[in-house]
Design a protein around this nucleic acid. Structure first.
Length: 850
RNA sequence: GCCCUCGUGGUGAAAUUGGUAGACACAAAGGACUUAAAAUCCUUGCCGCUUGCGGAGUGCCAGUUCGAGUCUGGCCGAGGGCACCA
């Protein structure tokens, strides 16, 4: 028996696929299509196990769809702009372009070794002018549609490095590199008007039936539509400000209003600009953590203006006006009214400053006044304490009714608010797509004419400058537009812009004049299955959805509004973490164990190692396993098999050496089985047809087809183990060789999406006439599911007592006869009265006895 | 604090619509083969007594049902998301 040599077999088939253009997408638009896309990687240097999992999940589906006769688009590209290249280049004095290109070539080779069915002819890289040229064109298109604008916005500013910092570069309020205290600074920045499509983006979610609910809910919360109204409050004795406009979702609690709270950035703060106590208060607010959780638990703080506002419903009721740390300027109008009885934050605030708490909603069955202690009542109920609003059902009826009254009295009006903010796309960095805008001598915005695109990034420049390197490129910045000297914008685009349309580019990757060709896009889009990490649940996916809305806007030819029909978010690959006695992280191959319990350092055999919890593989915790090494020792098929086998794809999977080993052994076992099968086939046995094998294969096809459609890949691997166990036993019987070959080729086709090299090799050995490229996914023969004996479960008083094998659709009387003649069952029934029989045909019979 | 998801053997997990709980694997223990080891194969979830059988059992407590891992309510625990969003 020859040993399976994965190295030669995998190399052979990878070369075969490449030479035969097996995965080059057909241009035949009459075929039904399937667009399978995995989130493209950032070329960081090497692929990691997360990539292996992501791309294997997609590859299984792509190969399966191809075997089912679909015209499959399964492309790959590189999300190649971004900070890591700039940082790496800066610290090692390299060119970001060369660094990126080198990483791409390494990672491409690694991906190819996995045997993925990718059409490399469509490879794209976002940092190439061939790609970003079209992006600049889109930018100008959006500019013309007035979906792009410029405004001042706050940024994290490092005063020493003279640069803008990303949130993750701010550590404890200090710049990660310089250590300088980060300032809030206003800069002119470019924005996409994503808010304009808030309603569309929210509504669109409803039709995305093949998206995980979790992701839809996250996006829904992010968009944050709230229905309410704006109300004007008059201020007493104040010349500069007569009114304050507030937004509320609970106007029905207006009679419960006991104060007004304003953001420290509210226009009214002008009145206190010289007040040192107010300045201190404002500083204190700015210092507060910005995460929702940190602030939800933080103490509510206020600054009393000593001004009073009149309740619009009763001008005799006057309430104090405060600045408060829990009110934000960029939502609503930066002002709220405090309804202390029915909002927890308002209540906390009222208690702190001894303000009134006036309950105005009480539960339907509650008698008398509602006593509020330290918990606000936010549930449904009846309005009371509220004059003409009394008796309304809260919140649905009361909110609508109150808005109507406010509108009639011209005190306020209905308003729908979204918490979604516009998308800031300016980055003060070098390694990104240049914004195709220039400024004339008077700082007026000048569009770059299309004929001048692309605006290419300057190459080989000095990156070790303060601030944005492009600011120092005087020659590059100077540009003549219509004979006028202008200066190029030095901000580059957020890399999320690059990934917001790359899936369109894959449809026409070589199109020169425009980002895509409309008939290609109409054929391929939307992406039928998009696969990636849940970490992109909001930003990338929402921005891509926005981009389709933006292209679609005022464009009758572009009819796509949703880019991804199906979404699958895979779990992470985890591994235990190790620390030595000094608390340094250790890589798994720096440690060893004899008993699986106590771990020691390989370099110092008596130094024990602390084993930490299993966490997502990351370089910082050193708990990574290098896919390349694993492929080297076990082969791509074995890695694919392992990464699919242990856990459902949407859940985290634990890396285990034992599991990897076992997947490898399974391949060897399958090879042993293959040898036996081939031998049996070559023996040319002409026995009667073995219906057992036919039945088994049929039910296997049914199971696997169903499981593959539902991403239950781990169960399929178990199905393959069952197949191995069954076939190993069955081969001892006398068989019909033709029938065996027939069944075996079906099994090999089903193995193909998972272990493509192995199955191709086996099929090749089975018959030189067969090639996986020409095979189709096996069909079920229904006849094997008809007239089959079934196992009927016998329950007595709901407890399983026996299982009997009977003919399908046996009637109740016959079943009862069998039960009565069954000694074991008779004991349970004897001397008792059967009061009820429940028969679920072909499944179960439950006898209730007394 | 708010929102979401999930709790099944020593471990990862199976269980189409409520209908045989623990498929399939990993680990451990015992056994077989072997001079021995490796490899391979077999057995083993828990409690009780004699093969066999009986009992309990899917985080906890109730409920619906002939029947609940699955449905409902409450509690406990773990994980994830969060931009103070009024």
């Amino acid at each position: 028996m020859n040993r399976y040599n994965f190295k030669t077999v995998e190399k052979k088939w990878q070369e075969y696929w490449s030479h035969n253009n097996t995965f080059i997408t057909s241009s035949d638009k009459t075929k039904r299509k399937f667009y399978c896309l995995e989130m493209f990687p950032y070329p960081s240097g090497k692929i990691h196990m997360g990539h292996v999992r992501n791309y294997t999940i997609g590859d299984v589906l792509a190969r399966y769809k191809k075997l089912n006769g679909y015209n499959v688009l399964h492309p790959m590209g590189w999300d190649s702009f971004g900070m890591p290249a700039e940082n790496a280049a800066r610290s090692n004095n390299l060119d970001p372009k060369k660094w990126t290109e080198k990483n791409i070539s390494v990672m491409k080779t690694q991906l190819q070794k996995l045997g993925l069915s990718i059409d490399w002819g469509r490879e794209i890289s976002t940092c190439t002018p061939e790609y970003y040229k079209h992006q600049q064109r889109f930018f100008l298109e959006l500019f013309d549609k007035k979906l792009v604008y410029r405004k001042e916005n706050y940024v994290n500013w490092d005063p020493v490095d003279q640069t803008v910092l990303a949130n993750e570069q701010v550590i404890d309020g200090k710049g990660w590199r310089s250590g300088a205290i980060v300032e809030r600074k206003k800069l002119n920045q470019w924005f996409f008007n994503i808010q304009k499509f808030s309603e569309e983006l929210l509504l669109g979610l409803e039709n995305l039936n093949d998206w995980p609910n979790k992701v839809k809910i996250m996006q829904k919360n992010w968009i944050g539509k709230s229905y309410g109204c704006e109300i004007d409050f008059e201020i007493e004795n104040c010349n500069e400000f007569e009114k304050i406009k507030i937004f509320t979702t609970r106007p029905d609690t207006l009679f419960g209003c006991s104060f007004l709270a304003l953001s420290v950035d509210h226009p009214l703060s002008k009145l206190f600009k010289d007040d040192s106590k107010f300045k201190d208060f404002k500083n204190q607010c700015n210092k507060m953590g910005t995460t929702e959780e940190a602030i939800a638990q933080a103490e509510k703080l206020g600054f009393n203006t000593n001004l009073f506002a009149k309740n619009p419903f009763d001008k005799n009721i006057k309430v104090p006006i405060f600045f408060a740390n829990f009110v934000l300027m960029d939502y609503g109008f930066g002002a709220i009214f405090g309804s202390a009885g029915h909002d927890q934050r308002d209540l906390d605030f009222a208690r702190k400053y001894n303000l009134d708490v006036i309950p105005v909603v009480k539960p339907i069955d509650h008698d008398g006044d509602l006593i509020i202690k330290d918990k606000a009542y936010t549930g449904p109920g009846i309005i009371y304490n509220s004059k003409f609003l009394n008796g309304l059902t809260a919140p649905d009826e009361s909110v609508l009714e109150t808005i109507k009254i406010l509108e009639n009295k011209k005190l306020g009006s209905k308003k729908i608010n979204f918490r979604l903010k516009d998308w800031g796309i300016s980055r003060q960095r070098y390694w990104g797509c240049p914004i195709p805008i220039a400024y004339d001598e008077n700082d007026n915005i000048v569009k770059i004419p299309e004929s001048m695109l692309p605006i290419k990034l300057p190459e080989n420049i000095n990156l070790n400058t303060k601030g944005n390197p492009l600011n120092h490129q005087e020659d590059w910045r100077k540009i003549k537009i219509d004979g006028k000297v202008c200066y190029l914008e030095t901000d580059t685009l957020d890399t999320f812009v690059d990934s917001s349309w790359y899936f369109l580019r894959f449809c026409s990757p070589k199109n020169k004049n425009y980002g895509f060709q409309i008939d290609d896009v109409n054929y391929w889009m939307p992406v039928d299955q998009y696969i990636g990490g849940v970490e992109h649940a909001i930003l990338h996916l929402l921005y891509s959805r926005f981009f389709m809305q933006a292209l679609n806007y005022k464009n009758s030819k572009f009819n796509i509004t949703e880019p991804f029909a199906g979404l699958f978010t895979q779990g992470m690959v985890c591994h235990e973490t190790y620390k030595d006695s000094n608390g340094n992280w250790l890589n798994p191959d720096e440690v060893f164990t004899d008993d699986g319990k106590k771990f020691f350092k390989k370099s110092k055999k008596n130094e024990s190692v602390e084993v930490g919890p299993s966490e997502s593989m990351s370089k910082s915790k050193k708990n990574t396993i290098d896919p390349e090494e694993i492929i080297q020792s076990y082969g791509a098929d074995a890695v694919r098999l392992f990464i699919m086998s242990d856990s459902p794809p949407e859940k985290d999977v634990q890396w285990s050496d034992e599991g990897m080993e076992s997947s490898y052994k399974f391949i060897l076992k399958l090879w042993g089985l293959h040898q036996k099968i081939i031998k049996k086939i070559n023996a040319n046995e002409k026995n009667n047809i073995n219906e057992n094998i036919n039945k088994f294969t049929n039910s296997l096809i049914k199971k696997i087809t169903n499981n593959i459609e539902n991403f239950r890949y781990n169960v399929i691997i178990a199905n393959f183990h069952e197949m191995y166990n069954f076939m190993s036993k069955e081969l001892d019987n006398s068989l019909n060789s033709t029938e065996l070959a027939n069944n075996y080729s079906k099994i090999l086709v089903m193995l193909n999406p998972f272990i493509p090299h192995f199955s191709s090799e086996c099929l090749d050995e089975l018959s030189k006439l067969k090639k996986m490229d020409n095979e189709i996914w096996p069909k079920i023969d229904e006849k094997y599911f008809e007239n089959e004996n079934i196992n009927l479960v016998i329950q007595i008083n709901g407890k399983k007592r026996d299982v009997i094998e009977i003919e399908k659709d046996t009637n109740e009387d016959t079943i009862m006869n069998i039960i009565k003649n069954n000694e074991k069952l008779r004991n349970h029934i004897m001397g008792k009265e059967i009061i009820k029989k429940i028969l679920v045909p072909n499944k179960i019979i439950n006898l209730i006895v007394k």
